Amino acid sequence: MKDLTILCGVEACAIFQNSFPEQPTIWPSVGEANRIIEKFRSLPEFERVKRMINQETFTEQRLKKMEAMLKTQQKDNRHKEFTQVIIQRLDGSSAILPLKTDDDCVELDNVINQFIKDIDRKMEILQNEGSSSNPAPQVS
């Protein structure tokens, strides 16, 4: 718990109650826990609600975040797959373009356009390097 408060930069307390009829364990201390709880209770309701999260809400938020990450990774993988197939085709391979949906056609178009932009950029760099290394002769 202490590590969590340090890493997150927040005040926290914990009350642990096990199934036996013993006194609960309170961290960091009873007095400090009471102070933190009172500080929390003194906040306006909208501030308290804003800071509250239960396991279900936390899990839903994590799931949404993970789904977004999965979607991004799938798109990146698809882009790489198209790039690999295009390179194989340019090398003379008879690789089959995996076009199954309209989204595949859009992704293929994006990959091809990115190739064209990269080639144009590299050509511009080479032209600039060539013109700067071979200065035009000065006319006297």
Score class of each variant (00 low, 15 high):
residue 49 V to Y: 00
residue 50 K to Q: 02
residue 50 K to N: 03
residue 52 M to V: 07
residue 52 M to F: 14
residue 55 Q to S: 13
residue 55 Q to G: 13
residue 55 Q to V: 14
residue 56 E to H: 10
residue 58 F to R: 03
residue 58 F to E: 06
residue 59 T to I: 12
residue 59 T to H: 12
residue 59 T to L: 13
residue 59 T to C: 13
residue 60 E to L: 11
residue 60 E to K: 12
residue 61 Q to G: 09
residue 62 R to Y: 09
residue 63 L to Y: 06
residue 63 L to K: 01
residue 64 K to D: 06
residue 65 K to W: 15
residue 65 K to N: 09
residue 67 E to H: 03
residue 67 E to D: 09
residue 68 A to L: 01
residue 69 M to H: 09
residue 70 L to Q: 04
residue 70 L to M: 08
residue 71 K to T: 01
residue 71 K to P: 10
residue 72 T to S: 04
residue 72 T to D: 08
residue 74 Q to I: 10
residue 75 K to R: 15
residue 75 K to T: 09
residue 75 K to L: 15
residue 76 D to H: 14
residue 76 D to W: 15
residue 77 N to E: 04
residue 77 N to T: 02
residue 77 N to K: 11
residue 78 R to A: 08
residue 78 R to V: 05
residue 79 H to V: 08
residue 80 K to S: 11
residue 81 E to N: 02
residue 82 F to G: 09
residue 82 F to Q: 07
residue 84 Q to N: 08
residue 86 I to L: 08
residue 87 I to R: 09
residue 87 I to H: 04
residue 88 Q to T: 05
residue 88 Q to A: 13
residue 90 L to H: 03
residue 93 S to H: 11
residue 93 S to N: 01
residue 93 S to K: 10
residue 94 S to Q: 04
residue 95 A to Q: 02
residue 96 I to E: 09
residue 97 L to I: 03
residue 97 L to K: 06
residue 98 P to E: 00
residue 98 P to D: 08
residue 98 P to Q: 01
residue 99 L to C: 03
residue 101 T to K: 11
residue 103 D to C: 13
residue 104 D to G: 07
residue 104 D to F: 15
residue 104 D to L: 10
residue 105 C to P: 01
residue 106 V to P: 12
residue 106 V to F: 15
residue 106 V to C: 11
residue 108 L to F: 07
residue 108 L to D: 09
residue 110 N to C: 10
residue 110 N to F: 15
residue 110 N to R: 07
residue 111 V to W: 07
residue 111 V to A: 05
residue 111 V to N: 06
residue 111 V to F: 09
residue 112 I to K: 00
residue 113 N to C: 00
residue 115 F to E: 00
residue 115 F to S: 05
residue 117 K to D: 10
residue 118 D to N: 03
residue 118 D to C: 12
residue 118 D to F: 15
residue 119 I to S: 03
residue 119 I to R: 02
residue 119 I to F: 13
residue 121 R to Y: 15
